[in-house]
Every structure is written in structure tokens, then in C-alpha cells.
């Protein structure tokens, strides 16, 4: 018995718990000491599940203020299971077309997990060559400090960086924009961005995370994913662009057509691949 030193299980408050976990895990607190407002636990996961609306999800999920489920941290740690979430939503949404998109998105997690079982640590390696006209060696190994600190001056990117560090959660669309910015605008290896996300995301799962970064990078897709200001502004209702110093100064790196961006970001790629 003497060799085991169990951690405490009784706490007067969440603040008490946070102070204890901070003291017990100083290395994690040193990396980043924020506590997310999103609570852990199956009870909280079931509350989130109770609020899912399949039809509204399908109609609004791409918008940052859309009716997304926010179930991912609970699914990642098995506090709720994919099958019970599916059962609940399908049972409550008898019209198949209303639950279809939600179930399809759940299936992505099942797909990533099956690939993880097959690939193991191979999820850290490029699945395929980049289709950007660049070689892996053309990409930087480390994530630049200004992205990690939220000091790029692009209000959207800095906002996503702050949310990631402070809450451990980003909307899926914000993850895609951030990943595209890191890999294609800053030409950084996707692995550096993936590691940063795993540090912070409450739902950080090596398979879902890394293979999604590879999809954006084009090492696990037919072409790189990019976005432009019009796309971001639409799905964020202009929330970032309104106060952005770059947007108001005509220096926004995203304020171009897809044709212009493809030619600028991937000058060596054949036009049809951009």
C-alpha cells in the first residue's frame, strides 16, 4: 500500500479542484495554466446531448454561432459513446434527412479511430506527398511564436489562438481556417500545428486531429484546403473583420479570390491542383 499515493477525490469547489490539479501537475500548468469553462464528466456530456437538434445542426453547423453539439470532448474521452449519441439523435429525429448530417459527422470519428488502429504512430507521418508544389523540406518545423501568442495582427487568427489556449475548444470551421493559415500562408509543417492543437484541445485525439491536419495540408487529400475573407466573413457574421487592423488597412492576407490565392500560395503547383 505504501508505494501507492492516490490523488484526492473530494473538493469543496471547482476552484479547490483547479488549485489541487495545478499543484499536482506543475509541468502541465507550466505549459498553459488556463482552466476551461467547459466542465468534464458524463453528466455534462449528457446535458450537451440533450440539447442536440439534428435538423438545426445540419442547417447551421458551418457558422461559428451555429447549433453545433460541442460533444467532441465527451466523445473523445468516452464520457458518452458514439453509438449512444447516434441512438439518441436518430430516435428523437425520425425523419432520416434531418439526422443524416449529424450521423455522418459522428461517422468521421469512427473512421479516424479505425485508421488509427491500422496506422498507429503512422498518423504522424505524411500519408501522401503534398499537392502544393512544395516538398516537405520547404515547410518550417516549428510553429511561429506570433501564432501561438495570438499576435499576428489578423483578428480572426489571433482570436482563434486565444480561444484555443483559454477554452480548449474551437469550432470545426475555425480549426480548418487556422490549419490552412499555419500550413499554407506561413508554410509550416502540419505536424507542428497538430502538436499545438493536441496541447490545448479538450477533444484532442491524435487520429482525428492529425488526419484532419493532413486533409488541410493535402498529404491526405487531393488538393490543399484554403479559404478567403469572403468565406470567413460569411460564417463568422463579420465578427472578426469588423475590428481587424488588417482588414481596415487593406492588408488582409485572405482578402482575395480563390484564383489569386491559389496562384500566390502555390506558384509551383499545376493550376488544376490549386
Amino acid at each position: 500500500m505504501s508505494e501507492l499515493q492516490p490523488l484526492r477525490r473530494e473538493f469543496a469547489s471547482r476552484e479547490d479542484l483547479i488549485a489541487y490539479v495545478t499543484a499536482q501537475f506543475p509541468a502541465s500548468a507550466e505549459i498553459d495554466s488556463h482552466a476551461s469553462p467547459i466542465p468534464g464528466g458524463r453528466a455534462a456530456g449528457l446535458r450537451a446531448l440533450g440539447a442536440v437538434d439534428g435538423a438545426k445542426y445540419a442547417a447551421t453547423r458551418n457558422y461559428l454561432n451555429g447549433r453545433v453539439s460541442r460533444l467532441s470532448p465527451y466523445l473523445r474521452h468516452g464520457a458518452v459513446s458514439l453509438s449512444e449519441v447516434r441512438d439518441h439523435v436518430v430516435r428523437r429525429t425520425p425523419k432520416r434527412h434531418e439526422s443524416e448530417k449529424f450521423v455522418n459527422e459522428l461517422a468521421w470519428r469512427d473512421y479516424w479511430q479505425r485508421l488509427y488502429a491500422k496506422l498507429g504512430d503512422g498518423i504522424w507521418r505524411d500519408r501522401e506527398p503534398y499537392k502544393t508544389g512544395f516538398r516537405p523540406a520547404d515547410y518550417a518545423d516549428a510553429l511561429p511564436d506570433d501564432i501561438m501568442q495570438g499576435e499576428t495582427s489578423a483578428a480572426c487568427i489571433d482570436g482563434f489562438s486565444r480561444d484555443l489556449r483559454e477554452t480548449g475548444y474551437l469550432h470545426n470551421h475555425a480549426r480548418m481556417w487556422m490549419a490552412a493559415y499555419v500550413v499554407h500562408w506561413r508554410r509550416v509543417k502540419w505536424q507542428a500545428g497538430a502538436r499545438w492543437f493536441l496541447t490545448h484541445l479538450l477533444d484532442g485525439d491524435p487520429a482525428s486531429n492529425n488526419l484532419s491536419w493532413q486533409w488541410v495540408a493535402s498529404t491526405f487529400s487531393h488538393k490543399p484546403y484554403i479559404f478567403n475573407r469572403e468565406n470567413l466573413e460569411k460564417y463568422t457574421a463579420g465578427a472578426y473583420c469588423r475590428g481587424c487592423p488588417l482588414a481596415n488597412n487593406r492588408r488582409c492576407p485572405f482578402d482575395k479570390t480563390y484564383e489569386q490565392l491559389g496562384a500566390e500560395l502555390f506558384p509551383n503547383a499545376p493550376p488544376e491542383g490549386r
Partner: peptide, 10 residues
């Protein structure tokens, strides 16, 4: 994996 405190707390 440089896991931050909020993930441990969750």
C-alpha cells in the same frame, strides 16, 4: 505531448 492543464482538469 505537452498536455496543458485544462486537458488534465477535464
Amino acid at each position: 505531448w505537452e498536455i496543458s492543464l485544462k486537458r488534465v482538469l477535464f
